[in-house]
Amino acid sequence: MRQLYVVTHPEATHHVDGLVGGWFDSALTTRGRQDAARIADAVKSYGCADGAVLVASDLTRCRETAAPVAAGLGVKARFLPALREKSYGEGEGRPDAWFRERFTPPPAVGERLGHDEGMGAETMENFARRVYTCMGEVLAARQPDTVVVTHGGTATMVVAHWLRLPIDALEYARFRVTPGSISVLQEDDYFHNRTLVSMNETRHLAD
């Protein structure tokens, strides 16, 4: 049985300050750091084995989330820029209101993957291809357990890659997750089917 644990970083300063995340390098809040420790305990409780592969976005909020997970599993995390959130260009680190005045949403029907949102933002297609390429390399070793610490938007790409969804499906398909969540996916050894076991588990977080 091969298992993939997808962790989203918990509360970060850009959340409480009302700023756009993306590649903006925010850190965890005090609550976020407390929740990171709870995440580490929860990953172990789900059955993740010591010595698992641990990869994470290289942004500070994911580094700080990965640290207690790495300590709990007795491993070193690899920090990969390709696991960053979608880039919002000039909008990163800006107030949400400023961003929404300038953001151009994709059409309901038509070109969505290559849509230009303005502000030099990364297209959804480029975002998906970046994460798909990265996860293909991470999973090529076929380790029994892999933990990915990343961002909310990136989690959709990681899960979609595991389920072998074509990038074209990401014109519309999304997996909604919240900060500090854990999603568990499996591949069985007999049929090699890939299963989404649980999504957006947050029972481990502070009240």
Rank of each mutant, 00 (worst) to 15 (best):
R2N: 09
Q3S: 11
Q3E: 07
V6R: 03
E11G: 02
H14N: 12
H14Y: 15
D17L: 14
L19P: 01
F24N: 09
T30G: 01
T30M: 00
R31C: 11
A37I: 06
I39Y: 14
A40V: 09
D41H: 14
K44M: 11
G47L: 12
C48S: 07
G51M: 02
L54C: 07
S57G: 03
D58Q: 01
T60W: 03
T60H: 11
R61H: 05
R63P: 11
A66E: 04
G72N: 13
K76H: 11
R78K: 01
P81N: 00
A82P: 02
L83H: 02
K86I: 13
S87Y: 05
E90M: 11
E92T: 01
E92L: 02
R94Y: 10
P95K: 04
D96K: 15
D96T: 12
W98R: 08
P107Q: 00
G114S: 14
M119W: 07
G120R: 04
G120N: 07
E122W: 05
T123P: 06
A128K: 00
A141F: 02
R142V: 13
Q143T: 08
P144C: 09
V149M: 03
T150H: 08
G152Y: 05
G153N: 07
R164E: 14
A169E: 14
E171Y: 10
E171R: 15
E171S: 15
Y172T: 13
R174A: 07
F175W: 12
V177M: 12
V177E: 09
P179M: 07
S183C: 12
S183Y: 11
L185V: 06
L185R: 07
L185P: 05
Q186E: 15
Y190T: 10
F191N: 14
H192G: 14
T195W: 10
M199Y: 06
N200P: 08
A206N: 14
D207C: 06
